[in-house]
């Protein structure tokens, strides 16, 4: 197998290992659309990065974080409902990113690569970046795990017990921004959220505790990356979407497994 395949595979595994556990919180906190909005904004980050000749990953992280902050502030005002706001910002920033990129005719841009990922263009430097960034994200997530879990279940309870809820929330947003910047390379801005959500959802029926769900989500993501890349290599399918399709298949398979939490069909059960 060619070297570039090895780097792609390693990068994919690294990203899956981080987006699985973080994705569990995205799913638990019902933030799927929120993550999507941050991811769409990432394209604007790419455009800004290109325009200012800075590191694209930094550009993506900064813009995604800013979008997250704006969302938090606007949601507090509550003049518009949450999902309307998300819809506006999600498509607004995506289009803004495309328009800005359109102005830069002098730069040769692989737009499809940004939208749907270009894992086969992963370099050694990318793998190192993902390893370092991913380890950092996992380290912080482990430190915050217990309070984050408590405030996911009941925010006021966490506040009453003295946790700095707002600060933890902010750090969590920054972690998502970091993961988006890393995952973008693999599956592209349009599919980033799928790597956060699908492995986590697929893991749900296999586990009984939040911790095992995080581990299972990471493993399922890794399997999806492996299968998707293999398909891409042998069948010549686009790599990003192939990974997502592989994740989708594992999710569908997980539905056929009887849930471990007893009497409940978990995913589609009423609250």
């Amino acid at each position: 197998m060619a070297d570039f395949m090895l780097w792609s595979w390693l990068a994919g595994l690294g990203v899956a290992g981080v987006s699985g556990p973080l994705g569990c919180f995205v799913v638990w906190r019902r933030m799927a659309y929120f993550g999507d909005t941050m991811a769409h904004g990432a394209l604007l980050g790419v455009a800004m990065g290109l325009m200012l000749h800075t590191n694209l990953t930094m550009g993506v992280m900064v813009v995604s974080s800013v979008i997250a902050l704006v969302l938090l502030l606007l949601q507090r005002k509550q003049t518009l409902s949450g999902d309307t706001l998300l819809g506006i910002l999600s498509h607004g920033t995506l289009s803004l990113g495309l328009v800005v990129l359109g102005f830069m005719s002098q730069v040769r841009i692989d737009l499809m690569g940004y939208l749907f990922g270009d894992i086969l263009a992963v370099s050694v430097a990318d793998v190192i970046g993902i390893t370092v960034g991913g380890s950092l994200v996992l380290l912080i997530l482990t430190k915050l795990w217990n309070p984050l879990l408590l405030m996911t279940i009941h925010e006021d309870l966490a506040r009453a017990e003295g946790y700095p809820v707002d600060r933890i929330h902010l750090i969590f947003m920054l972690l998502i921004a970091m993961v988006i910047a890393m995952t973008m390379k693999i599956v592209g801005v349009l599919l980033v959220t799928s790597m956060l959500i699908i492995p986590a959802a697929a893991a749900r029926n296999l586990v009984r505790s939040p911790e095992t769900m995080a581990v299972a989500a990471a493993l399922i993501g890794m399997v999806s990356v492996t299968l998707g890349l293999a398909a891409s290599f042998y069948l010549d399918t686009p790599s990003g979407p192939s990974i997502v399709v592989a994740a989708l298949i594992t999710f569908l398979l997980s539905l056929s497994i009887p849930p471990m939490m007893g009497r409940h069909r978990t995913l589609f059960a009423k609250r």
Binding site: V27, W28, R30, N146, P147, L149, L150, T152, I153, H154, D156, L157, A158, A160, E161, Y163, A201, R204, V207, R208, S209, P210, T212, M213, M260, M261, H264, T266, L267, A269, R271
Partner: peptide
């Protein structure tokens, strides 16, 4: 503190004993 309502989404796997260990 025993809050009024703690809605736990079914996508969160949680047993009674794990619930007691939430937080500090």
């Amino acid at each position: 503190y025993v809050p009024q309502n703690i809605p736990i989404d079914s996508i969160m796997p949680l047993t009674v004993s794990r619930f007691l260990q939430l937080g500090m």
